[in-house]
Structures are given as structure tokens and as C-alpha cells.
Design a binder for these strands. Structure first.
Lengths: 159, 159
DNA sequence: GTTAAATATTTTATATATGAAACAAATGCG
DNA sequence: CGCATTTGTTTCATATATAAAATATTTAAC
């Protein structure tokens, strides 16, 4: 078949390489994120005998001293309601957070860090930041700014 | 900027804003990845009544017609051994893959797509690519190339 | 005010996910 | 050969994750 058929792309009904490149980016992004998550998880487990989701919850609560409702936690962390229930149950069990009734609305409860929870988190957070610092060392300052901007656009937060 | 700036932080024992910026990037990356994953999962569920991990396994098997060992699957997908066992069990149950004995090594088994599995995957893959195409539309061609390069460096694949 | 609709959380069923232990089979070594 | 080690997978216990159903309360309609 020497002819002109299959010419490079001709009139082209190909999926356009752009879509392949987007797919490739997505797969790389997934792989990189999983890689970093697994490193952080391993560190969390070895250094503090805890998990990443628990750390994420503590981090969110640390930012809001007055506490958060279950639904606020689940929407901010982008995980389901039922999931948060289980994680909070275990954190309560460990004495790191408490459930506080909301006066005027007996449906909802506020979840708040205990003193122990705040202290525990503070210590973990510094170490966690150092881990991230190291994992992201291969990127330059400009890389980072550029990436943050891209990610924001990806989530439709253009302004 | 006049001369020897760097003054701003003085003698500074501060965590250096760079480390905060890295942390910020990590959190954004996690958030964006989760956002996209949840969109894709929702689509998978609504359109094909299946899950993303199952799709990922099919995708990997589709690339290797002769099949993959359980351990190869788990390392390529970056998930644990035990996890793969469960996912394959269900895919076998649905007739999408088969476990094939390896002659000469009765410890291991090869997992291979069935005809039905290959057909099912082919159809899903095209739709999946379209979903990704749409989700990544906000990024330009240059953005994408730049991001892929960054992600590779992040995973230490410099060459 | 009693019921209907909306809100907030938990429960349930199931699928992912891990790490460790159990098992089975292959390999290496004396 | 006989046995310790290694390799490949599954099993186990547990944690995370979802979606959907069940519960409990509040708010809104009428």
C-alpha cells in the first residue's frame, strides 16, 4: 500500500491527538497523586500510627476553632456523609475531637478539636509540611505558581 | 528591587513561604484530582453501572492481550495485592476477565480479558476519553505539555 | 396545629484500599 | 535429597469510600 491512503492525517476522522494528550495528562496526574499520597500515608502510619483521612479531618477542624458540622466537613473534604461519620467516631474514641450539640437545632452536631486533638495535630502538621516540602522539591517556584493556576482553572475557579 | 533584598524575612527562622506554597500546591492537586475522579466515577456509574477501579483494571489488561499476573496488575495500578484479588473476583463473576493458569508455575495466574470484556472496555474507553477531553478543556495545549513534564519530574522520572 | 417538605445525620450494603499473616509452590543450598 | 528462603496469591482484620435507605428534627403550608 504505497499510495496516498492513510496519509498522515488527511481529512482525518481521528480522535485528534489533543484528546489523547489530555487523557495522558489525566493518567499522569492520577499516578503522581497516588504516589505522593502513598508516601504520605506511609509516613503518617510509621510516625504517628494514624491515617491520611484522619489527618485531613483534624487539619480542617484546626482551621475552624468553633467547630464544623458533619455536613460541612464532608463537603469541604469532598467525601460522603457516611464516611465522615465513621472517621469522626474513631477520632472521638481516641479523644482527639468531640461532638458538641448545637443549641436550637437538635438535628446537627458540631465537631470540635479537643485540647489533645489540637496538640496532636500541631505536631503532626509541622512534620507533614516537611514531607510535602521534600516531595515537591523537584519543582521550581515558577513551576509551582503555574501549576496552582492551572489546577484552579481545571476546577473552574477562574476568578 | 534595590539590591540585596531578601531582607523581607530578616534572619528568619520562618518555614519559608516556599514550603507553604508547596503545601498549597499539594492540597490543590489533591482537590482537583478528587474532583475529576468523582465526576468520572459518577459517569461510570450512570452510564455503565461500573466503577473506576474496575475500569482501570480493564484498561490495563486491554493493553496487554496475553494477560497480566496479579502482581503485575497491582504494581502497575499502584494498589495492593489483596485489593486486586477482590476486583478481579468481581470481574470474573461478570464474565469480563478470566484467570488462566501459567504452565510451569502453579503459584501465579494470568488474568486476561474475555471477548465480552474486550468489547465492553472498547465501548467504555471511547466515552471515557470524551469525558476526560471535556474535563480538561480549560487547559491549553501548552498547559498540558508543561503539566505532563512537571508531573514526570515530580515522580523522579527525569530522563 | 397537623401534615408535608426539607435538612442533618446515621445506618446499611457493598466496593475499595491497606498491611500483615497464611498458604502454596518454586528455588537455592548443603 | 531435604529444607530454608523466596516468590505469588489469597485471606484476614480494619479503615475508607460511596449511594441509598432509615431516622430525627426543623421549617413551611395550609
Amino acid at each position: 500500500m504505497t499510495g496516498m491512503n492513510s496519509a498522515p492525517q488527511a481529512a482525518a476522522h481521528k480522535p485528534a491527538p489533543l484528546s489523547k494528550q489530555r487523557l495522558r495528562l489525566w493518567l499522569q496526574m492520577l499516578k503522581a497523586t497516588r504516589h505522593i499520597e502513598s508516601r504520605l500515608r506511609e509516613n503518617m502510619r510509621n510516625s504517628y500510627a494514624t491515617t491520611l483521612p484522619r489527618f485531613d479531618v483534624l487539619a480542617m477542624l484546626d482551621r475552624v476553632p468553633e467547630g464544623l458540622k458533619m455536613s460541612e466537613l464532608s463537603s469541604r473534604l469532598m467525601v460522603s456523609n457516611g464516611n465522615v461519620t465513621g472517621i469522626i467516631d474513631r477520632l472521638v474514641n481516641d479523644g482527639l475531637v468531640v461532638r458538641v450539640p448545637i443549641e436550637g437545632d437538635r438535628r446537627a452536631t458540631l465537631v470540635r478539636l479537643t485540647q489533645k486533638g489540637r496538640e496532636t495535630f500541631t505536631e503532626m502538621a509541622a512534620t507533614h509540611e516537611a514531607w510535602v516540602d521534600e516531595l515537591f522539591a523537584p519543582l521550581s517556584n515558577d513551576d509551582i505558581d503555574c501549576a496552582i493556576d492551572m489546577l484552579a482553572r481545571l476546577r473552574g475557579k477562574d476568578e
